[in-house]
Amino acid sequence: MRPEITRRAFLKGSVIAACSIASTSSVARAAAAIKTGEPIATLIDISRCTGCEECVHACKEVNADKYPKPAKPFPKMYPKSVKVEDWSDKTDATERLTPYNWLYIQSATVDINGEKKELTIPRRCMHCTNPPCVKLCPWGASIQLDNGISRIDSDICLGGAKCQTVCPWLIPQRQTGVGLYLDILPAFAGNGVMYKCDRCYNRMARGEIPACIKICPENVQTIGPRDEILKQAHDLAASMNGYIYGEKENGGTNTFYVSPVPFDKLNESIEKGKGQPHLASVENSMATGDKLAMAMLVAPVAGVMGAAVRFYSMSKKRMIK
């Protein structure tokens, strides 16, 4: 019997085919942009996310070899108030960011046109354009790549968690009992290694897109050159009369969230806490430092001027004498 193609099956097939062609071409475009080494950004369309956690599991799968493998028992640390942070027995946790979970889904219940709706938001490192975690790491363990990725080198990190303290979203997460500190002074300095999303830097170096973007069945994320992606974010926000988060936050990031509801509303609704970042507006954390750095250029001039004034007044005094 000849298989009969119904109208429904035909339409379904066409939609799937169209989607795959569209996604393949967007992947090809992104891969081409990645190869050029220019700053790459991602656009996250919150209205499309269904919270299926495919991205979370894909992230865990491709980054499994980067996860910490701590040696136990952990060395004693002094003073005794220094806390051990151990996630090695909770590697499956997906309800927050951990050293074994660099991406998780946050949910918010909001009113859209008088209708209560649940929005789900993939959360991970924002990859700031001027990242405080990179700039302020005293050990050089946190680095920024030419393509805008900020990542923590687990071979160098001592786990002091300064990167977490200076991050406006407190993204990096610590695992005790692993890393370089074990070979130096484990009792007195360091406490493991900090972990966070590295936007699949190794995949991107091969011209592939990050796993969370590739796996997403709803095409929630788009990746490409920052200028292009920012324009897309504005167009999308305009089309849904929506809002953008990440463009101006902390002086600019390489992640743009687009939402149909204001982000302060989302921020009120989401669960916040350790490993669960907020969605509040963020001032540029490095702004004061950057202004003072510029003022540093004036310091030599001021010093020379001061000495010149003294020289002039001394010469005048000597002439009078």
């Binding site: 310091a299 030599p300 001021a302 010093g303 001061g306 000495a307 020289f311």
Partner: peptide, 10 residues
């Protein structure tokens, strides 16, 4: 830096 330049020039 200001002080260093001041002392040197002085």
């Amino acid at each position: 830096i200001g002080l260093a330049f001041y002392v040197c020039v002085d």
